[in-house]
């Protein structure tokens, strides 16, 4: 995150000459592919979604502008608020995975031999197809024949219909979501841990600090920029969660689906099932605003807890 220091220092004179300068010209040529790619793949779809969100668009053919109708309908739609609640709950639950990842990363750091094996084991879910993950968990969490309920029954705990009862579905998604992202978080946090100088630990142990004290006084503060980074990524991807709903509740007659939709699932349904593209675009724009707001709030709050050396 040190892009600013790497920016070339330009004199006032060079800035005036602008693109005519040979080096600048070449630089523009070199970044052109990336710029064009960005424009085509992100800016153009973004602009067209923005426009579509103010239109009533039939499945095929041109739409007409209807002003803020789509937004007004969205904000008075109970399904939207329920989806917002579901996505919010899911995001909050997935964030609980970060402390787990921190503790595990710290523990793996302590392991002297075979550290890589643990990392690979935890990383496997990350490189597994989300659809496959969803299918397998759907079987594990099956109310009548699932492994999870069988395991609970061994302790005398009554099982539930984890993926067929909308009181539990979001929690089921969150458990799978945490499991799926644990590996990548471990890698990032592990890298953060390795950048903490060992002499801090040596010095503190000379001063009589124990493991626990070291964890809270050295590890956590010095790891905080990495934790912050992981948080930003987790929140964005959690707010965009769609695949688990689609795969785990995918069967046509799953009655829990109505209470388990996330914002992006609502977007998918409006745009790709019900041919309401204007509404779908409005959902996407609202999600964009929510993600921007959530990220801005985190940046504001980071000043209170993130320690930069």
């Amino acid at each position: 995150m040190s892009t600013q220091t790497r920016e070339p220092v330009r004199s006032a004179k060079r800035r005036r000459t602008g693109v005519s300068n040979r080096t600048d010209w070449w630089a523009l040529v070199m970044i052109a592919p990336a710029t064009i790619g960005l424009a085509v793949l992100y800016l153009w779809p973004f602009a067209s979604t923005f426009l579509t969100s103010f239109m009533n668009v039939p499945a095929f053919g041109p739409g007409q502008f209807t002003g803020l109708d789509n937004y007004a309908r969205l904000l008075t739609d109970g399904d939207f608020w329920r989806a917002l609640r579901n996505s919010g709950l899911y995001t909050g639950l997935v964030l609980l995975g970060i402390p787990i990842a921190i503790v595990l990363a710290a523990l793996i750091q302590q392991v002297s031999r075979g550290r890589a094996i643990y990392r690979v084991l935890f990383f496997l879910p990350v490189v597994t197809l989300p659809v496959a993950v969803g299918m397998v968990w759907r079987f594990i969490l099956n109310g009548d024949f699932g492994l999870f309920n069988w395991a609970l029954s061994l302790f005398g705990i009554p099982g539930q219909y984890w993926v067929a009862d909308d009181r539990f579905t979001i929690y089921a998604f969150a458990a799978v979501g945490i499991w799926m992202t644990l590996g990548i978080n471990l890698i990032i946090l592990g890298a953060g841990l390795q950048s903490i100088p060992m002499d801090l630990y040596e010095a503190s142990s000379l001063d009589g600090a124990g493991r626990i004290r070291q964890f809270f006084s050295i590890t956590l503060p010095l790891l905080s920029p990495t934790i912050f980074f992981v948080m930003i990524l987790s929140v964005i991807s959690a707010l965009q969660m769609f695949d688990l709903v689609f795969v785990m509740l995918g069967s046509i007659n799953n009655t829990a689906i109505d209470g388990s939709k996330t914002i992006v699932y609502l977007f998918y349904e409006a745009g790709f099932v019900q041919f309401r593209q204007g509404d779908a675009a409005a959902i996407a724009m609202v999600l964009l605003i929510i993600i921007m707001a959530a990220t801005a709030v985190q940046f504001r709050l980071q000043k209170k807890w993130v320690v930069y050396e």
Binding site: P45, F46, S48, I236, Q240, L287
Partner: peptide, 11 residues
């Protein structure tokens, strides 16, 4: 971040 977030949705 916001661009990446929506871009993934829209393409």
């Amino acid at each position: 971040a916001a661009l990446i977030a929506t871009g993934a949705l829209l393409t």
